[in-house]
Each structure stands twice: as structure tokens, then as C-alpha cells.
Amino acid sequence: MALLTCDNLSFGYEGKALIRPLSFSVNAGDYLCIVGENGSGKTTLMRTLLGLQPPIGGKVLLDDGLRRTEIGYLPQQTRVQRDFPASVREIVLSGCQGRLGKRPFYGEEEKRRADEAMEKLGVAPLARRCYRELSGGQQQRVLLARALCATEKLLLLDEPVAGLDPMATEEMYRLIEGLNKEGTTLIMISHDMHYALGHASHILQIGSDWFYGRKADYLRSAMGRNYLRGGREGR
């Protein structure tokens, strides 16, 4: 069975669906890119997949072997309060919270994971710094490190490269791809069509209508061609 399946899923706010019901499934090892215009509902879809808001109709099904605690998430914006005193390490370590089970404290295993994740994302030198004093790009990496702590199975990333400089973007993409090669299933929201078409295995476009399929099929579809043409003239 697929890792995650949407069955006639509609989502939105206050009982009003944003788009017509959506059905697709993500298999282990897939790299799904969700594309669409601003305000089309990408973030809302992701929040619905994660169970942060209830679907208006239909279902989100998880594979039996996948526990909720094995899903990592990188939010588009965290509503972190401006004054929150927290060090980078504390935040990355909090990504392990799903692994605690009934234990009260993080053990060696979790600390090692956190250190590895920080190393991977190049934020290890910032470990003792205060999160709110970091630049936007650095904060983004810290949050990705946190997501990485949660799981290697399924990661949901909402615009992971927003606010990163070209070098860091490149690096972030390489990293994300590396994760996928190592077997992590990815669902990523991106506005970077060029990249999405270059590296994703599947594309989900949402808007007034939606399309889901393999990358090659998307390129041939009327919807995909349309969006790409529009995309070249700037969103």
C-alpha cells in the first residue's frame, strides 16, 4: 500500500473547500512536488495531510507501517513568538519529541541525532546561538534540521528554500535530494518550476483545477504546459 493516500480529499476553511476533491497517493521513495499559484491552497493541503486541520471531505490515509510520529514537517512560517529564548540545539533536539515515547528526557541516541542533523545542515557552529538572532536563511536550516530529527521516512517541506541565497538554495536542494536518495519520501511545496521539473518524480499542481502524475505526464498535459508558459512570464 502507498505510504500516504488522499481519497477524495477536500480541504479549506470554515467548511468551504478551496479546490475540488483531490485523490492521489504517495509511494515510499517518491519525491512529490506541489506547485501552484500563491493562495491556491498548497500550505492548507499540507496542513490537512498532517492532521493540523480537519479535512472538509474525504480522507487522508496513512500506511499501516507509518506512524504519525514518523513524519517530519518544515512549516512555511513558524509562528514563533518574537521573544522566545531558545538555543538552536534546543530547537533541533525538540524534533526528537516524537521519539520520546513515555520517557521524560532525551537520551544519548536523540542527542546524537540532533548533532548529526545540525552537522548535515551546517548549523552545528550555531548550536549555542539564540534562534531569534539568526538570519532568515539560518532559521530555515535550523527548522529543517529539526524536521530531520523527527524521521527519515516521510518529510513534508513547505517552501524549504524561501529566503535562502542562491548558494544556500543550491545546497539545500542537494541536501534534500540526498535525503531522497537515501530513501526518505518527500512532499515539497515549491515555486521553483525549473527545479521541480528537474528533480521531482511526481508533480501535483493545484489551483482552480488540479493535476497529479509523473513528471513526464505533467509536461505533456495541457495544464502543465499552460502553467509553464505562464510561469516564464513571471508569476
Binding site: R67, T69, I71, F84, S94, G95, L156
Partner: peptide, 22 residues
Amino acid sequence: ILFYNRIFAVTFDEDFTRAVGL
């Protein structure tokens, strides 16, 4: 003391806590 890590987590980012199924 027992819930220190959880209290930190929900105070910092409640959505993440819920997203990882807690």
C-alpha cells in the same frame, strides 16, 4: 521537570508537536 521537554516543544511550536503526531 518531568515534562520539561514537552513544555518546551508546545511552547515553541505547537503545530510541529501536532504534526509529529503528539
